[in-house]
Design a protein around this nucleic acid. Structure first.
Length: 212
DNA sequence: TCCCCGATTCCCT
DNA sequence: GGGAATCGGGGAT
């Protein structure tokens, strides 16, 4: 039991190979509405466990649905700090949700990570979730934090330093847009972004001509 | 100090 | 489809 579990197959190659470019803090030093769709297809790992980001939502301080709308508080202070850091909060007293802070700096802008396609450390994620079905393993903001072991202990960590790793998507992807989920304010803003056709979303995206 | 409710998930009908 | 679980944040008193 002193033995460390083996790293998930393929992670070392991802880390070594120039084909998988690491995302640095500079990637997040851009407007949140630019960063959010650019994150679709990127790989997000914590301690080598995680997968491909397939769904996100953008929030910022002029947005009544955002935690930061009413100004800085102890809970949301990371949102008001520099870009490239993690903001974690507790949702409904039960779940953790993870955000990446973006520019403009001090504007309390962040991208909520809503779903990933599991690719690394799948057995570990299944164990943490007590679940076998890979399609629902990380298909929601509370699900993916449980699967990846993310808690308030990760609040304020840098996105380009251990234990977090982010890799740019290897090629362009088709990104679909929609209204955000689970909010009651500013419900009309099309600030939800997803990987077109993904089987790992928290909810399907409505056909563009209908809905909301 | 009190009270309401949420960037959710899961289970039941 | 509907409601419970569960608790901290923050507006209201």
């Amino acid at each position: 039991m002193a033995q460390k579990p083996a790293k998930a197959p393929g992670v070392s190659r991802l880390r070594r190979n120039g084909a998988a470019k690491r995302l640095t803090r500079a990637f997040f030093a851009r407007d949140v509405l630019t960063v959010a769709p650019d994150l679709i297809g990127a790989t997000f790992l914590v301690d080598g466990v995680g997968g491909i980001i397939v769904e996100v939502e953008a929030y910022h301080h002029t947005d009544p649905a955002a935690h930061s709308f009413r100004g800085p508080t102890p809970r949301n202070q990371v949102m008001f700090g520099p870009p490239g850091f993690v903001y974690v909060y507790r949702s409904y007293g039960i779940h953790w949700c993870v955000n990446f802070v973006c520019e403009p700096a001090g504007s309390a802008s962040a991208v909520l990570i809503r779903a990933i396609e599991p690719t690394f450390g799948i057995e570990e994620m299944k164990r943490r979730r007590g679940l076998e079905d890979i399609r629902t393993l990380c298909s929601g903001p509370g699900k993916l934090t449980e699967a990846m072991g993310i808690t308030i202990a990760h609040n304020g960590l840098a996105l380009d330093a251990q234990p977090i790793e982010l890799f740019a998507r290897p090629s362009d992807v088709e990104v679909v847009t929609g209204v955000r989920i689970g909010i009651t304010k500013a419900v009309e803003l099309p600030w939800r972004f997803g990987l077109k056709g993904s089987q790992f979303l928290s909810k399907p995206f409505a056909p563009s001509s209908r809905g909301a």
